[in-house]
Structures are given as C-alpha cells and as structure tokens.
C-alpha cells in the first residue's frame, strides 16, 4: 500500500486544483451508523467538469460517503465543502438547494407517482423558466421518460427507473451530480447505455461523482478515481492509472 501514489490522509491527488476551484471537498470525514464506524476519515475532492468515481467492494462505505455529502447522514468529524462552503452540518433538504443532486442506490423513485411528478419533485425548491428548460433537457437525454411521463413510476422497468432517478436528480440543477450504483441490476446493454448518458451529461457541463461496483465501466468514463476500503480511501489516481494498477485489477476488476 505504501508504494501507491496517494494514501489516505494525504491531500493532492494528481488532478488537484486550488481549493477554490473544487466543487466538492471532503476532509477527514468520519460517519457512524450508531456504533458502527462506517467512514474513517475520508478525504477527497471533485473539480468542476470532472467525472470522479469512487470504487470499492460491498460495504466499503461508498454509499455512506454519498449520503454524508448530501446530508442524509451527518459526519461526526471532518468537513464537507461544496463550492467552498461548509455543508457538513446542513440538513439534506438545504444541501439540495445549494447544488447537490443525488440519485440514490436502488433508484428509489416515487413509485405511486407519475414520471412527470417525480421530475417535478426534483425541482421542488426551484421556480422560473429554467425549470422548463431543464425538463426539456432531461426528456432529451431520456426520450423514454417523455413517452412514459403520465405512467406511474412503479410500472417502469429497472432501466427506466434508473433513468428517472438520474433525471430527477438533474432537475435539482446540481453543481455536482452524485450517482450511486447506476448499473445495479441492469443488463450489460442497458448498463452501457446508462454510462453513455452519464458521459453525455458530463459533456453538457455537469460534474459527476460516480459510485460503482462495476469498476471497469466506471474507470472508463471517469477522469479520476478513488478506491475505498472499509471506510478509508486507500488509493487515488487518474482513472487510467487505476485501471492499470495491479492491486486494483486484482481486487476490483476481477483479474487474478
């Protein structure tokens, strides 16, 4: 582990920018579930326009990291900064308004509501003409959602629900989009499609923090990556370097 480029606790990963230029910045974040110490000092950052991926095995704390960022869980120690502003102690519903869009693990669409209502809820804190612009953008990215906008979200297929979850998070007009396991439970073809759309969203200027178990796909679309293991960042490098890294290949890319 000591031979790796960056180790837990150190700052300055390869693509590091000056602090002001970071959309998202976590510094020594500790999160607990009751007595379970889930995050043990996570330090990472995301710069504007990037896709950064957070990979790691089951239970490593990937989802907890995202939940801590968006305020569903509260860090007991450390700080979370969004565009330079401390949001560590802020409740989730206020964090959204400052620009964190979170598509949670397992999609969790509002299944008894229509597709359109789900998307409207994404814009709950917003008003004005740009809401309509964003809605048009989401329907552009996901034409399937437009076709099914009056349908109850619970009747959608898994892939469509994932599209809805991403679209709904985009409707919050995020400065960083948190995606939690967008490929979960999807066929390889659908997974590829979703990842293509993630790149497209990024090309349109949205910064993305992507949590994935499918490390290969994630490292393909991302510029940088972090490897999380039992609540600690053990590796941080460019996506290309991580994909070539022996340790990563063994542990997460299914190579022996």
């Amino acid at each position: 582990m000591s031979s790796q480029p960056a180790v837990h606790g150190q700052s300055g990963p390869p693509a590091a920018q000056t602090p002001a230029e970071r959309v998202l910045e976590l510094n020594g974040v500790h999160t607990y579930y009751g007595n379970i110490h889930a995050l043990k000092g996570v330090t990472m950052d995301v710069a504007p326009g990037e896709i950064v991926t957070l990979i790691g095995s089951n239970g490593a704390g990937k989802s907890t990291t995202l939940r801590t960022i968006s305020g569903i869980e509260r860090a007991r120690e450390g700080t979370v900064r969004l565009n330079g502003r401390d949001i560590t102690k802020m409740p989730a519903h206020e964090v959204v308004a400052l620009g964190v869009g979170h598509a949670p693990e397992g999609r969790r669409v509002f299944s008894r509501m229509s597709v359109a209502e789900n998307l409207d809820l994404g814009a709950f804190r917003r008003s004005g003409p740009d809401v309509a612009t964003d809605l048009a953008r989401v329907y552009d990215l996901f034409p399937r959602l437009k076709e099914r906008r009056t349908q109850k979200a619970g009747t959608l297929s898994g892939g469509e629900q994932q599209m809805l979850a991403i679209g709904r998070a985009l409707m919050t007009q995020p400065s960083v989009l948190l995606l939690d396991e967008p490929s979960m439970g999807l066929s390889p073809i659908l997974t590829e499609q979703i990842f293509k759309i993630i790149s497209e969203i990024n090309d349109q200027g949205t910064t993305v923090l992507l949590v994935e178990q499918n490390a290969l796909m994630a490292l393909n679309v991302a510029q940088r990556g972090y490897v999380l293991q039992t609540g600690k960042i053990i590796l941080s490098d460019t996506a290309a370097n991580l994909a070539a890294n022996e340790q990563v290949r063994q542990a997460y890319l299914g190579e022996i």
Partner: peptide, 22 residues
Amino acid sequence: RTGRAMRAVSEDKDVAALMGIN
C-alpha cells in the same frame, strides 16, 4: 405543492429530503 411533498414523504423520507423537501 405541499400535498405532493406529503405524498413524497409518505413514500420515502430520505429521498423526499433529497428533493429539497423539509
């Protein structure tokens, strides 16, 4: 709007909060 938020809260509180609902 409040009624819709109420339905969202009744389905999933965490996600409702992620939508900006108090």
